[in-house]
Nucleic acid binder design. Structure first.
Lengths: 159, 159
DNA sequence: TATAAATATTTTAATTTTGAAATATTTATA
DNA sequence: TATAAATATTTCAAAATTAAAATATTTATA
């Protein structure tokens, strides 16, 4: 057990205080995600994971590899396979093979996919703006810096 | 589209800046969750959702209802049913009926469950302490306040 | 007291998610 | 050039997750 010094909250060690705030952070972000998920379903009959993949594809009009999606969305490879499969089946995305590298797939939104995403994107941005109204962007920025500071592990590449 | 005023980041409207930071926040928290999930599996052959449920049960030695677990963990009712079922099967938790209300179940950790959780809890707390080393607790606290400020929707109760 | 509304939970079907193993391909090295 | 190592992706089985519907019970109300 870590020594009970340097405590910002009376009676709690620094590590316990950090743990508590971390749990609250997860809870709060999950609440907002739940709200967004419900609105996507009710307004557009769309799921959050599909929306997230489409957003990543929209940001990459020249296409992005499966592993790129996995990296920027911080989900497993196999997960991306399933979601993209369904988007392709719905003709919202296409897979193509390039590069002379026959292992890699390049994923793009179709015209219908772009239309579908743009139809949702404006309202989605307004929702985030509404739900995070109280947030000071500078604080989030700082916290993001602090959060990513210890990620010697996973993916923290820019977009 | 929201007017392009009050911009903290050049070229980005306030809502776009907020959206971008929100996505980064989700990505960073997810990276840390992924790391914790992997360590739990490798060190203890345990999953994160099960650990989270056990943590909530440990904090409530007098028991907590299924709906209470659902609320504090911000997951659906049906989800809790499945996880608790597996914990009960493994004899780490028990369900009991009290209150004179035959709809409700009170869930508790068994002695084995308490032992199992305590065995993991210290190391888990160290992991969080390590992974969030760069985090200023005051900033997380402030951000939590800001995040929960707009949650007229979901659950933001204490505990 | 019936009946309706509210509450607590489980069930169900579909999707999401993970980690590990398998497959295919490319790159590096002996 | 073989062979090994690395890379990219899919497949697989199990668990997690959701939303909606179903079930059971309690509480409120006419």
């Amino acid at each position: 057990m870590v020594a009970n010094v340097d405590q910002g909250i009376p009676g709690l060690s620094a590590s316990k205080a950090r743990l508590k705030l971390w749990i609250q952070l997860l809870r709060n972000t999950r609440s907002i995600e739940t709200e967004i998920r419900g609105r996507l379903r009710r307004e557009f009959n769309e799921t959050l994971p599909r929306f997230d993949v489409m957003a990543a594809l929209y940001k990459n009009p020249d296409g992005i590899m499966m592993s790129g999606l996995s990296r920027v969305l911080v989900v497993s490879n196999g997960n991306v396979t399933g979601i993209v499969e369904r988007l392709v089946k719905d003709q919202l995305a296409v897979r193509s093979q390039r590069d002379g590298d026959r292992r890699t797939w390049i994923i793009r939104l179709t015209t219908a996919g772009v239309e579908h995403f743009e139809m949702m994107a404006n309202l989605h941005e307004q929702w985030i703006d509404e739900l995070l109204q109280n947030i000071d962007p500078d604080h989030v920025d700082l916290l993001n810096t602090q959060l990513s500071g210890n990620l010697k592990y996973g993916q923290d590449k820019h977009d």
